[in-house]
Deep mutational scan, measured.
Amino acid sequence: MNLTVNGKPSTVDGAESLNVTELLSALKVAQAEYVTVELNGEVLEREAFDATTVKDGDAVEFLY
């Protein structure tokens, strides 16, 4: 899956889609429990991480 992460191209191997929690784990995001996630310009509530799917071509920003 090809994404733009914090403005840079990134690839997650072996996945066509992941939820936000899985993406944080796959990318080994440090202190993931404290990060705010913006997906395609929309800031996500932490409670929505498990239910929100990240797909090929999406833009993700991790805000600390």
Rank of each mutant, 00 (worst) to 15 (best):
V54F: 04
N2Q: 12
A59D: 08
V5D: 01
L3R: 00
N19R: 06
E33F: 10
F49C: 03
E61G: 07
P9E: 07
E47Y: 10
E16M: 14
E38D: 05
V20W: 03
S25N: 11
K28T: 05
V29A: 04
V29H: 04
S17D: 06
V29S: 03
L63T: 15
Y64Q: 07
N19Q: 04
G7D: 03
N40D: 01
M1R: 03
D58M: 05
M1E: 01
K8A: 08
V37N: 01
V20T: 01
V20N: 00
T11F: 15
L44W: 03
E47V: 08
G57P: 01
N40C: 04
F49A: 01
V43E: 06
K55A: 06
G57H: 05
V12M: 07
D50E: 10
A15P: 09
S10R: 15
T53Y: 15
V29R: 02
V60T: 02
V37F: 06
V12G: 02
A48S: 11
L44E: 00
T36K: 09
T21P: 03
Q31D: 13
R46C: 07
V37A: 02
P9K: 10
L23V: 04
V37G: 02
Q31L: 13
G57I: 02
D56F: 05
V37S: 01
L27C: 08
A48E: 09
V35W: 07
N40P: 00
L44C: 06
A30E: 12
E47H: 12
L18N: 01
E22H: 06
K28M: 09
E38W: 15
A26T: 08
E22M: 11
E45W: 08
A51W: 14
L24M: 09
V12C: 08
L3D: 00
F62P: 03
G14W: 14
T36A: 07
T36E: 06
N6L: 03
V43L: 12
L23H: 00
A59M: 11
S10I: 15
L23R: 00
D58L: 03
L39E: 01
S17E: 09
G57Q: 04
T36L: 11
V60Y: 05
L63Y: 15
V5K: 01
E38F: 15
D56V: 05
K8Q: 10
L27P: 00
Y64D: 07
K8E: 09
V54I: 10
E42N: 12
T11G: 06
N40K: 01
E16V: 14
A51P: 03
N6F: 04
Y34E: 07
E61S: 12
E45I: 09
V43C: 09
L39A: 01
E22K: 09
T52W: 05
A51Q: 12
E47N: 12
N2H: 13
A59K: 14
V43T: 09
V12R: 03
V20G: 01
T4Y: 10
A30C: 15
V43P: 08
V5Q: 02
N19D: 03
G14R: 08
D13S: 14
L18W: 07
A32R: 10
F62Q: 02
G41M: 04
S25Q: 13
A32D: 08
D56M: 06
R46M: 06
L24E: 01
V5N: 02
V54D: 01
F49Q: 03
N19P: 04
T52H: 06
G57T: 04
V60P: 04
S25T: 12
E16G: 11
Y34F: 12
V35M: 09
A15G: 08
L24I: 09
E42P: 00
D56H: 07
Y64C: 11
G41W: 04
E47L: 08
K8N: 08
E47T: 12
A15F: 14
E33S: 10
A30K: 11
Y64T: 08
A48V: 10
D58Y: 04
L63S: 14
A30G: 09
E22F: 06
S10K: 14
N19I: 04
V20L: 07
G41P: 03
V37R: 00
V37W: 01
L44F: 05
E33C: 14
A26S: 06
D50I: 07
G57K: 05
E42T: 13
A51N: 13
A26G: 04
K8L: 10
G57V: 01
S17R: 11
T36W: 10
L39N: 00
T52V: 10
F62A: 02
G41C: 06
V5I: 13
L24Q: 00
L24N: 00
D13A: 14
A48D: 10
G7Q: 04
S10F: 15
T52F: 06
T11K: 14
M1W: 05
S25C: 13
Y64R: 06
M1V: 07
E22Q: 13
Y34H: 10
E16N: 13
V37M: 04
V35N: 03
A48K: 12
V29C: 11
E47I: 09
R46Q: 06
A26R: 13
V35T: 05
D13W: 15
D13G: 11
G7T: 03
A15H: 13
R46D: 02
K55R: 12
F49K: 00
L27D: 00
V60H: 02
K55P: 01
E61A: 11
L18Q: 03
V37I: 08
T53A: 09
A26Y: 15
A51M: 13
L39G: 00
D13I: 14
L39I: 08
A59H: 13
D50F: 07
T21K: 08
G41R: 04
D50T: 09
D56S: 11
D58A: 04
G7N: 05
L39S: 02
P9I: 09
V5A: 03
F62S: 02
L44Q: 02
L23G: 00
L24W: 02
E42G: 06
E45P: 13
L27A: 00
A32L: 11
E42I: 15
L3M: 05
V5S: 03
A32C: 13
D56L: 04
V35R: 03
V29W: 07
T52Q: 06
L63R: 14
Y64G: 07
A15K: 12
V37K: 01
E22G: 09
L24G: 00
D50H: 08
S10H: 15
V29F: 07
G57R: 04
S10T: 15
S17T: 12
F49N: 00
T21R: 09
E38V: 15
E45G: 10
K28P: 02
S25Y: 12
D13H: 15
L63P: 04
K28Q: 09
T11S: 09
D56N: 11
T21G: 05
L44I: 15
A48F: 11
E45N: 12
E45T: 10
D58S: 04
V29E: 03
L3I: 14
P9V: 08
N6A: 05
S25P: 00
V29N: 03
N2V: 12
A15S: 09
L63I: 14
L44G: 01
